[in-house]
């Protein structure tokens, strides 16, 4: 029998994914948006394969950031519209599991559109992805986790705010600057192959930030939940 909070976490994620499978609201929007953003960037900035390593990391992470915002703003939409936060608040131990469940859901959404985005970008920029696939994936995983972990927390804080769709990026983007810098630098270093050790240092730093957020956010989420229930 899994620990209670783990069972609750998976229940929340399963519920969100079941709903998404029916409506395809988030995945359709994010995949479409990410591909459009990528196409605009490719046609605007791509010159030749020599300049590709300089612009590819920026395009990749800006695309991920913009598209992630779409799914992050919808994180608690169901709970807001149905008022279910009140019912969840009456269930003991839901604060941690609600955060982790929503985080997991967001990770699934973000990884889904990354699956669509990454091959297109790699193909368009002729990026030597298969020279260091492990390093690319580690950088992608660490950056994505950082965006989802901070974004899910902020999304909950703003759930009842009238201007939440505007405020979320306004607050989220400045907070994500360290994550984005580390993600872009690590991707760039892997791409050029100049200094893989430095790339791994950036990735380690990213995972460090992720760990801090993953420790802090669930601990604080109880206060957020009691304020928004």
């Amino acid at each position: 029998m899994p620990p209670r909070f783990l069972q609750q976490t998976l229940t929340i994620t399963a519920k969100d994914l079941r709903r998404e499978l029916r409506s395809r609201e988030v995945t359709t929007t994010t995949i479409f948006f990410s591909v459009v953003v990528m196409l605009v960037f490719v046609f605007s900035f791509y010159r030749d394969s020599r300049t590709a390593p300089l612009i590819f990391p920026g395009i990749l992470w800006v695309s991920i950031l913009f598209t992630s915002t779409l799914s992050l703003t919808r994180s608690f939409a169901d709970e807001r519209e149905s008022g279910c936060l009140r019912a969840l608040a009456l269930i003991p131990g839901t604060s941690v599991s609600l955060y982790l469940g929503k985080l997991l859901t967001n990770l699934v959404y973000i990884l889904t559109f990354e699956l669509a985005l990454l091959p297109l970008l790699v193909f368009s920029f002729e990026v030597p992805f298969f020279e260091n696939p492990g390093a690319y994936l580690a950088s992608l995983a660490a950056g994505t986790l950082g965006i989802a972990a901070i974004g899910t927390f902020l999304s909950a804080m703003l759930v009842h705010h009238r201007l939440r769709d505007i405020l979320l990026p306004l607050i989220l983007y400045p907070l994500l600057v360290p994550v984005l810098i580390a993600s872009v630098r690590s991707t760039q270093l892997i791409l050029t192959g100049e200094d893989l050790e430095a790339a791994y240092s950036w990735i380690r730093m990213l995972f460090g930030v992720d760990a801090l957020v993953l420790l802090g956010a669930p601990a604080l989420f109880g206060n957020v939940l009691s304020a928004i229930e």
Partner: peptide
Amino acid sequence: IGWVGHDPLLYANL
């Protein structure tokens, strides 16, 4: 505690 409020607290898409 069991609670029935003004809102049903049910997910509309389930």
